[in-house]
Simulated assay, not measured.
Amino acid sequence: MGQARSSGSSDRTKVIAGIVVVAVLAVAVIGYVIYEQMTPSTSGTDAIPLAPADHTISAPAVREGGTVLVGKDTATLTVDVYEDFLCPICGTFEKTYGTDIKKAVEDGKVKIRYNILPMLNRLSSPEGYSTDSANAALCVADDGKFNAFHAALFTKQPEEGEAGYTKDQLIKLGKEVGVTSATFESCVRNQTYKSQLDELMSKTSNDPALRDPESGRFRGTPSVAAGGKLVDLDNKNWLADLTK
């Protein structure tokens, strides 16, 4: 009798152990799948996934020099947003406020002037992704497709210190969002707007209205300004307050 109970207990232990192993493996597989979905391809050829439609602003987008103005002509308030496509906090900013910005723009309450800065070039490997992506965004804006491109690059960002998306991938994304211009590919490959982006970076860095009062330097990305003054992003209702 004692041996029978011992054998049953041993069998149950083996079954339980087996279930635990399967559960651990399942969690590991799920975790890996999520990681793969959140991590950009480093192959240099895979397509960058498009952002969901509800993450993409539906409003005119026009390049103005090194910036892109998004919104309806009837909007009387213009807000400047300063971002870098490599900046992880900018990604958080877009996830936190993107829906509110989209609604405010589409409702005609505000225009957003996107200042996409080549600020973090040294933090990609190889260096230069900030310029490549910002330049590509301006090339896309020439064809009126900036909004979908902008949303895609923030939905699935490269990580700081890792490889950014290649020019081939950026070109492929541009075509995915509907760019048809014959000069688009050369615009991306030749960094057509690099000088304008460098000028924008210099102008932004030296703008007294964008300096941190403590350090005296540019606040960094993401930053938001309206009426010549920095917006306090610690105030979660900043956009609602601006559009009252």
Rank of each mutant, 00 (worst) to 15 (best):
K244P: 14
R122S: 15
T243Y: 04
G2T: 11
D11V: 15
I89F: 14
G228C: 07
K229C: 06
D207V: 06
G128P: 04
D241V: 13
T243D: 07
P60Y: 00
T92F: 06
W238Q: 09
T180A: 08
D132R: 08
G216C: 10
R5I: 09
L197M: 11
S215R: 13
C90S: 15
A148R: 05
V231Q: 10
S41P: 06
P88W: 04
M1H: 09
D241M: 07
V24P: 01
L123S: 08
P40S: 06
E83I: 10
G164N: 07
A137Q: 10
Q196M: 10
N147F: 10
A209E: 08
E214S: 13
T166S: 15
F149L: 02
D100H: 09
I48M: 13
A141D: 02
F93V: 05
T204W: 05
D232I: 12
K172R: 15
S181E: 00
K14I: 08
G2R: 13
V105C: 03
N237H: 09
G174Y: 02
K111P: 02
T243R: 10
Y193D: 06
A134L: 09
D212S: 06
S205M: 13
T76H: 00
K172A: 15
H55F: 06
A240P: 09
P158H: 04
T67G: 07
I57N: 00
V29G: 02
D212F: 07
R122I: 14
T45N: 12
N115V: 03
F184K: 01
